[in-house]
Amino acid sequence: MSDSADIKNHLGKYWMIGAALLVFTGITVAANQLHLAVPLAITVALIIAITKGSMVAAVFMHLSHEKKWIYGALLLTVVFFIVLMSVPFLTVNDGIGTPIHVPAPAHTGGH
């Protein structure tokens, strides 16, 4: 991906992807107007966002053909990103006892 002739072939693709991203933005907004149930709405919106994100990464950031060191570094990042995303799960889902829903806040304070 270095020759100027090679680049010329890509120009059209960049505009196309730009247009596709705008279309997807439209779709997200339109989907939002349907007032889907929250879990479904989140799924739809995230799928569209992931699609858009991958398009930016693959084409604009040339990730579709990159060197192995970059893939390696990103793979590592993705793994730890997933670990990081498990933090909410760890915090919320597994606790000892039942959470205290405070009716009278007077007893919960520190000193």
Binding site: T91, P105, G109, H111
Partner: peptide, 17 residues
């Protein structure tokens, strides 16, 4: 939510973690 400090309730929106 419901944080009380030195006997005074904190004036915050709460719901943090």
């Amino acid at each position: 939510s419901g944080l009380v400090i030195s006997g005074k309730p904190m004036l915050i929106s709460g719901n943090g973690n």
